[in-house]
Amino acid sequence: MNGVHDLGGMEGLGAVDPPAQEPVFYNDWERRTFAMFIPFVLSGANLDMFRHGIERLHPVQYLTGRYYEHWLHTFESNLVAKGVISEEELEQRTQHYLEHPDEAMPDGGDADQAEHYLKIYEAGASTRRETSNETPAFGVGDRVRVKNIHPSGHTRCARYVRGKEGVVTEVYDAFVFPDTNSKEQGEDPARVYNVEFDSTELWGSGNAERHKVLFDLWEPYLEAA
C-alpha cells in the first residue's frame, strides 16, 4: 500500500538526532511487547502480517507513536482479525489494568516453554526457500526496471524505486513472497535480486548528492530494461 511507512526520500521529517546512549527498552511495556512476537506467530500469524499491521496504523499515529506502540497495534489488530482474541475482552482487561496497574500477570506457561522460545531466537527462522531448478530471469549485470505497480496490500516494492532502472549485482535464492504471505495466500517463494540504482536515476540529476542505493527486489517486482 502507498502508506506513510514507505519513507524513502520524504522530506520535512526533521533531524535524526541520535542520542549518545539509550537503553534497549525504555520501560516495562516495551520489553513485554517485544517478547510477544513468538506467541503472536504461534497464534497463527506471520512476519508479513506483522509488518502490514504496522503499515495500517493511522499515519499520525505511525509518525508520532513510539516504536513498540507499532508492535502492540499489529499484535492487537491481527489477533482480533484472526479471532484469537476479541476486542471486547481486550478492552475489558485494558480497563482492569488501568484501574489496577500493579496487579501481577496470571500464572501460565512453564520453564520448558520459555527455553523453547529462546531456542527459536537462537536458531532463527529463515524465509529462504528451495529454488527448484528454475533459471533466474535475470543475471548479474543485467539492466532491470522496477515495475510501476501500486498494490493496495503489503509489498516490499518501495515507491521510490518503482519505474526506476538499475543493474543486478547479486542473484539470491527464493524467499517467501511478502505480497501473498501477508494475505495468507501462500508463501509463493520467488527469487530475490540485489539491484544497484544510481542516485540520479532515483532523485534526478538535480539532486545535491551522488551515491548508489542497493535495494533487494523479488522477481515479480522486476522486468527487463
Binding site: 510477544m36 482487561r93 489494568y97 496497574p101
Partner: peptide, 13 residues
C-alpha cells in the same frame, strides 16, 4: 499503552 500491553499479554497467557 502499559494497560493495553498487560491486557494483551494476560490474554496470551
Amino acid at each position: 499503552i502499559a494497560a493495553r500491553v498487560k491486557a494483551l499479554e494476560s490474554l496470551l497467557i
